[in-house]
Each structure stands twice: as C-alpha cells, then as structure tokens.
C-alpha cells in the first residue's frame, strides 16, 4: 500500500515539470490568444476592446472559408494519400534486408530535410519555365498538359498537395511497420492455415490488427494538415490572389503583414476550435466502426 502510493507520488513528481511546461507554454497562450481576440491592437499604442467583432468578421470573411476549404483539401489529401501509400509501402518494405532498408530511408528522407528546402525544391520542380514537370510533359508531347502549376488558381491547391504527401509519408510508414512487426506470428500462421493470403491477409488480418495505429495516424494527419503552413508559405505564400491561402497563412498575413494582432489572435483561436472539433469528430466516427 505504502509502496503503491509512493510510486504514485513519484509519477506525479515526474510528470510535474512536463505538465508545468505544457501549462505555461501551451494552455496559457491559448487562453491569452482567445482573450487578445477581443481587442484591436496594431502592435503600437493602446489596445481597443471590440467584443466579438474580430470573431464575427473572420466568420464573415469569404477568404477565411476559402482557407478552411483549402485546409480540408490537404486533410483529404493526407488521409487518402499519405495513409494508403504509407500502408502499402510498409507492407512491401517491412523486412530488414539491405534493399528494404535503403528504400525505407529514401522514403523517410524528406522528413529530415528542412521544409524550406522542400518548398524551394518543389518550387523549381513546378517552375513554369525551367521546371522538370513541364519539361517532361513537353518532351512527352503532352503540350496541352503544360500548366503554371503554382500560379493557376484552378489547380495550384492540388499541385501543392503533392509535396505535402511526399514529405510526410515517412513517419506513417515507420508507425505501420512497427505495428505490422508486432502482429504475433501465431495469428499470422493461423491465418495462413485458414487460407488468408494476399489481399485477404491485408483486409482480414493486417488492417484489423493495426487498426489502432491507423486511427492514431488519421488523427495525426488531421491535426498536422490543419497546422500546415511552411511548405505553402515557401511555395506560394498563399497566393496568387489568396488562392492557396490556408488558415495558418491567413492568420500569419493578418497578424504580421497587416499588423492586426487582435484579429490574428481571433483567427488562431478559431483554428484551435476547428481542429479540436475535427479531431473529436473523427474519433467518434471511428469508434462507431
């Protein structure tokens, strides 16, 4: 009894620093920023209390909704792009042979590159004059397919999804490989005897056995996609004409280019609310399954 309570107090003491840091640097700023959202402040001079005006303005601004739509495109691209590709790759590459390890590192490599590097690199890949995409299309005789990939508002949102998917497959693949390696060999053997091979093995054994990991991956996808900022900021800056604006770039531009700190705070509070409800909603959906 005494030992148990001592253990518990040790756990508490051990958690305390992390908890304190989390409180001070995460929760308190969130509350503060929600509070600053009630004010108008240019960074210099006195702040003016506005009530809910910043929040209603954001909700009425069509660009805010466009940004949300763009974020949802990225959420969809991540869930339906990253997770299936990562799953397939993990099924193919789960062994530890030299070749598998090499391909695995190659897939994981974008994760260790700075996102500014990735952004600039893909900026050149999509470059309207010297970009390799247009060059290949040109050489393949597909002239009508040549586009200004990042400048044409009809397609640029989809064009920027490609590097986002490419750069983020790595960690999901690692997660899935770890989960697959954890499936006990008894289950695998039993399944084999019962004739579950190939696709059947995937649907009936692998996916159900690693379902919890997939759920975690989906939640990570959603929250990561709503935070998306760096790649888009480098590649398009949210432009042209705000066609690739995301919630985060919208917030950044309002806060640090127009210097509307209050409005930016209000937008970031809204981002938190939206992310929370999306993550909670997805969890509820998956629980029912």
């Amino acid at each position: 009894m005494a030992a148990a309570s001592r253990l518990r107090s040790f756990i508490l003491v051990g958690l305390l620093p992390a908890l304190l840091l989390y409180l001070i640097f995460v929760l308190v700023p969130i509350v503060w920023s929600a509070f600053y959202g009630f004010y108008e402040w240019k960074g210099i001079g006195a702040a003016k209390f506005l009530g809910l005006a910043n929040y209603t303005e954001a909700l009425r601004d069509p660009i805010f909704w466009k940004a949300l739509k763009n974020n949802l495109i990225i959420v969809a691209a991540s869930i339906f792009g990253q997770i299936p590709i990562a799953l397939v790759l993990s099924l193919v590459l789960w062994k530890s042979s030299w070749f598998h390890r090499f391909v695995r590192s190659a897939v994981f490599m974008p994760m260790v590159l700075a996102s500014v590097v990735i952004g600039i690199m893909w900026g050149y890949i999509y470059h309207p004059q010297i970009g390799i995409v247009n060059y290949v299309l040109d050489k393949a005789g597909l002239h009508s397919w040549i586009r200004d990939w990042l400048g044409d508002p009809k397609i640029n949102m989809y064009a920027v999804c490609a590097p986002i998917i490419w750069a983020n497959i790595g960690p999901y693949m690692i997660l899935f490989i770890a989960a697959i390696q954890n499936i006990s060999s008894e289950v695998e053997d039993a399944a084999k005897i019962d004739g579950a091979i190939g696709y059947k093995r995937l649907y009936l054994i692998v996916v159900p056995m690693i379902w919890d990991t997939i759920k975690v991956a989906i939640v990570l996808c959603i929250s990561g996609s709503l935070k998306a900022f760096d790649l888009i900021y480098v590649m398009t800056g949210g432009g042209p004409a705000q066609s690739t604006e995301l919630l985060a770039t919208y917030m950044y531009n309002n806060t640090f280019n127009i210097f509307r700190y209050g409005y930016g705070s209000a937008v970031s509070t809204l981002i938190i609310v939206i992310s929370m409800s999306l993550v909670l909603g997805s969890q509820l959906l998956m629980k029912r399954k």
């Binding site: 900026g123 470059h127 309207p128 004059q129 200004d148 990042l150 400048g151 398009t236």
Partner: peptide, 16 residues
Amino acid sequence: FQQGFNSLDNTQMEQY
C-alpha cells in the same frame, strides 16, 4: 507577360 508570372519572384524576372 511571360508564362507563369504569378509564380516567379522579382529576381527571376530580372534575370529573365
């Protein structure tokens, strides 16, 4: 203007 002017920056335009 040249193709893709909305995705070029001013240094690229000056070089061009």
